[in-house]
Design a protein around this nucleic acid. Structure first.
Length: 148
DNA sequence: GCCAACGTTGGC
DNA sequence: GCCAACGTTGGC
């Protein structure tokens, strides 16, 4: 899951570790669907820093809730406000994410060096999704090999 | 349903 | 700041 460290960094998320953070602001249907349909409480999360000097994996986290409506879509003051969303028919869903630990930064360039990770969706050409699935094999390789 | 125009993402 | 890639919008 990508986060801009200028918005919410792994350090910010860890500072609130006793209280999982709602993953607000996703306004892409594919990314929403991953949260709504594919994620389960307890699933591991690679916390990725994007749009920054050193993009890459910065920490580990865990899905901490089932999907529920993103409140910011109803908030006229929010930059994530969506006039077409209603409480009866919410358009945007999110999950809570609990940060577990900060890791060494595995830079995007480093990720690209490993053939074992070549098929990761986040590494695919042109990928812009802020949330992408990680296969069990990819998860194990990153957590068991790269983070040892 | 097509598709041109426009907007956004995000690495570099 | 550039720009490739992709998503969204809206006229037809």
């Amino acid at each position: 899951m990508k986060s801009e460290p200028g918005e919410v960094s792994i350090d910010d998320a860890l500072a609130a570790a006793h209280q999982a953070v709602p993953w607000t602001g996703v306004r892409n249907y594919q990314a929403r669907n991953f949260m709504r349909d594919a994620m389960q409480v307890g699933d591991g999360v690679l916390f990725y820093h994007s749009s920054c000097a050193e993009p890459g994996i910065a920490g580990l986290a865990v899905v901490a809730s089932a999907a529920y409506p993103d409140d910011t879509q109803f908030d006229r003051q929010s930059k994530y406000f969506d006039a077409k969303a209603t409480h009866e028919s919410p358009r945007w869903m999110l999950v809570d994410v609990r940060a577990l630990k900060k890791t060494r930064l595995i830079a995007l360039a480093e990720l690209r060096l490993h053939p074992e990770l070549a098929d990761m969706m986040i590494l695919k050409r042109g990928n812009r999704l802020s949330i992408t699935p990680v296969t069990p094999a990819e998860w194990l390789y990153i957590t068991q090999q790269l983070l040892q």
